[in-house]
């Protein structure tokens, strides 16, 4: 198989270049809502069996083969231009789903961690993960009811977010606001490219 070259437009028969942004956060925090605002397709769902995803990491033998539990992954798509397609993957943010993050986050341009200021604990594992994985991320406090319940400085302190990580507020129900949050992720990722 020929190796693709970015500088050359893909010829007939060569797939477009996929890029990915991960949307992380706890249940009910607005991940799927955010994806739905900007995706050009209805939000798609695929079921990822836990055994399969767990097999992608090192401790597969600790997971019983007969496990049939599945995790639903919601995702959407935005065609950027003739060649690039952007995928947005919503990733369960809790600690107990940590086993699947590596699989889903590999190759991501960056991540948006959505935080609910009423349940900041749900976001802590995600912040920790993306920091360790050295994937550029932005923390977006979803403005439920249009009001941030904590000052952003308090959120930064509570989640131990490094000073150089952008912390923003946005509304997952508002298309423009979600696009702005994604642009914040990309601008941060761009600043991290050496």
């Amino acid at each position: 198989m020929d190796s693709p070259r970015f500088a050359d437009a893909p010829g007939v028969g060569w797939p477009p270049m996929p890029v990915k942004i991960v949307i992380a956060g706890g249940f009910g925090v607005g991940k799927t809502t955010a994806v739905a605002q900007v995706s050009e397709t209805p939000v798609l769902t695929t079921e990822a069996p836990i055994t399969e995803i767990a097999a992608a990491i090192d401790r597969a033998e600790e997971v019983p083969e007969k496990t049939t539990t599945t995790v639903a992954l919601d995702f959407g798509r935005i065609t950027i231009d003739d060649e690039i397609k952007l995928y947005l993957f919503g990733t369960p943010g809790q600690d107990r789903f940590g086993f699947m993050w590596r699989d889903l986050t590999e190759g991501a341009l960056g991540a948006l961690i959505i935080a609910d200021s009423r349940r900041l604990d749900d976001s802590f594992a995600a912040v920790d993960y993306f920091e360790r994985a050295e994937i550029p991320f932005v923390v977006g406090v979803n403005l439920f009811d249009g009001v941030a319940r904590h000052e952003l400085a308090d959120v930064r302190w509570a989640l131990a977010i490094p000073d150089d990580v952008p912390l923003i507020t946005f509304d997952a129900r508002d298309r423009g606001s979600v696009l702005d949050a994604l642009l914040a992720v990309l601008n941060h990722s761009l600043s991290r490219v050496t």
């Binding site: 950027i80 952007l86 341009l109």
Partner: peptide, 12 residues
């Protein structure tokens, strides 16, 4: 990588 990110930024 920066060229790709810039293109995605322009697209969004």
């Amino acid at each position: 990588k920066s060229v790709v990110i810039e293109r995605v930024i322009r697209g969004l």
